[in-house]
Design a protein around this nucleic acid. Sequence first.
DNA 1: ATTCTGACAGCAA
DNA 2: TTTGCTGCCAGAA
Length: 121
Amino acid sequence: MKSQNTSGENDFFDLVYEITKLIPHGRVTTYGAIARYLGSGRSARTVGWALNACHARPDFIPAHRVVNHQGLLTGKHHFGNSTTMEQLLANEGIVVENDRVVDFREKFWDPSAEIDPFDLK
DNA sequence: ATTCTGACAGCAA
DNA sequence: TTTGCTGCCAGAA
């Protein structure tokens, strides 16, 4: 049965959306980090698949803050124009050089490490 | 129902 | 070191 979760939705997709919306302004994370936080670990592809459907969501999903583990804007092509994602990141102070987030490691925001249980309640 | 693809990531050679 | 294959989950044909 589908039990309701106090943190949000139980659906993998919705979970991805929730986490993505929790990404701080000016920070980025990776598909694998989200998947890992969800407990799936290697289901990073599903995270990307969920974000692919984020446009179908009424809520704004800052999917531009989600990149692959290299810091590459692999999904930029899904923002309509290839430059939209880069523009959004640049708007947040994130410098994108050659489709890659500059100082990605500094900008990286790991949900499983940064989110405290107190912040979730 | 089966097969393939997809905004990834990890591991083997 | 780089390259390639496999695993993962969900949806479309």
